[in-house]
Amino acid sequence: MMLPTARVIEFWRKTSDSDIYWSFTRSKLVMLSALITLIFFIGAFGAPWLAPHNPFDLASLELSDAFKPPVWEDGGDAKYLLGTDDQGRDLLSTIMYGSRISLMVGFLAVIFAMGVGITLGLVAGYLGGAVDSFIMRVADVQLSFPAILIALLVDGVSRGILGEARHSDFAEAVLVVAIGLSYWVQYARTVRGSVLVEKSKEYVQAARVIGLPGPLIAIRHVLPNVLGPVLVIATINLALAIITEATLSFLGVGLPPTEPSLGTLIRIGNDFLFSGEWWITIFPGAVLAILVLAVNLLGDWLRDALNPKLR
């Protein structure tokens, strides 16, 4: 048995020798994207420790501090680097907490969509026949609606079932399900396609001759070999999920203002855009745009790096 440090060294040696790492170090843009993404992740998930203020601590809020411009503008306060919003909350801290919610919802939605999509894609591809036809037709029908419409539908239905008051308690979970359900199709289609390719390969037939039952073959043999493309979609989908969450929140059907995500912040700021308090909406908007761009660039790179034909 190797010592942990030896394992780490071994792992690093293998990683730094791999094609992925090599292609990573070849592109400055990708490295920059990774750096930005990392900074945003740290800022978001470290918000409770890193943020200068706690915007949810109502006691610390002073209404007299509302509408402070960023520090470099006339009337800026050194206490509030990026200024404050209409309730006197520090904008930098609000953005950090807001990105945390946005990223969390994004991640959970992607995981939910992946879970649903991979399972259905695997079942459809491995079983084939009527099951396959049914799942894929449902997927086709859903693809003909815009994703945001599906998300709105799920959100509306849940409001009807839960009632407005309880809905805000479950707002995050509802968002995750709504966004997740609107994106599972891509995973299902990709996984099904790869499963069809892998299923006909001889290692699967070999497992069948050994006598392994179908579900075991699908999970142990086929699944690990179809996850590569899924990883790529998941990365690009993370950006999409964040945008969808922001859109829903901007439209007012997402997270409540007491629990503002980036989208909520943009919506709140939008009211003051033309009265001169531009910073309230511009800064969250810029953060959202840069984050989504960086994650997307990472996804694009990952897709190319994992594609043997482009190497």
Binding site: E202, Y203, A206, V209, N225
Partner: peptide, 11 residues
């Protein structure tokens, strides 16, 4: 059974 394609018959 032993298969034809040694590149496809091993996971």
């Amino acid at each position: 059974m032993i298969f034809q394609d040694p590149y496809a018959s091993l996971n």
